[in-house]
Design a protein around this nucleic acid. Sequence first.
DNA 1: GTTCGTGCAAACCTTTTGCAATAGT
DNA 2: ACTATTGCAAAAGGTTTGCACGAAC
Lengths: 159, 159
Amino acid sequence: MESRIERIKKQLHSASYKLTPQREATVRVLLEHEDDHLSAEDVYLLVKEKSPEIGLATVYRTLELLTELKVVDKINFGDGVSRYDLRQEGADHFHHHLICIECGTVDEIQEDLLGDVEKVVEHDWNFKIKDHRLTFHGICWRCQGKPDPKKANDKRDKE
Amino acid sequence: MESRIERIKKQLHSASYKLTPQREATVRVLLEHEDDHLSAEDVYLLVKEKSPEIGLATVYRTLELLTELKVVDKINFGDGVSRYDLRQEGADHFHHHLICIECGTVDEIQEDLLGDVEKVVEHDWNFKIKDHRLTFHGICWRCQGKPDPKKANDKRDKE
DNA sequence: GTTCGTGCAAACCTTTTGCAATAGT
DNA sequence: ACTATTGCAAAAGGTTTGCACGAAC
């Protein structure tokens, strides 16, 4: 079976870019931290552990490139930094985020919640949707002392 | 009838802040550009036309204050700047945005589209929602050559 | 040899901060 | 007088860019 890295390599090649060692190291970091929401600096520091010679500018350039190829999504939670989030393979929509205003945790919702809403927007506003960003700010189950919803129901894992 | 400025003044006072001339000038600019999505710099330049002595730092401090009081919402569309959007009076939810990737226009949807989605999130993820951000990226009616949906149906105005 | 990519440092841009001066009560 | 607020300039923080060097075909 073809690995994820291989497929990204092909994506780069078909856009006439190379998978250089620096780019590969950067992609590997992203794959190893798929659940996190790393800033460019975060990625830089993690890449540096394995490839100490890499420069911050290269990381920025690689992340920009991956964003362009839709391998990652660039998101902004309103603090001063951009974060980079690996897109689910084959996902035609960008996942949603739950930001806890107490502990700062960011959880992801992979399930598509916007199907009906998008129909309404396309029809009532004559707007052809290409992408979306949906973020909820509130209090997570941990800070409320409620059970982990992943255990209570497994909607997320079924997707 | 009490003006919008008066009500904002009261909001400031009840949080022990004053409506200084600089703050008033800033609020007036926001009111006069309610449909736009001004950056701090945009606001600064507009305020300067009427009150040339104002400093950029004051504008930033005022916008921060108004955000804290929930008079405006600070939004970030992914370009490097924060934008400030007057909240509808009495609105308990933050309106949504349609960003056209061709012409750059930003349209607003005041109607609440997320009622059902929020119920699902609160129930299935045990997440207590306090606020949300929903933005669609795509192609607006103008760039598609379609009719103005405001005229075709008046959902927005009825709200 | 030409092209693409990299590392470094400088530049850039937005936003924040320190501080002395000012305004309002 | 006392405290909040302002303006200015400097600093900070994140991101981009110019450029000479290096790697790959």
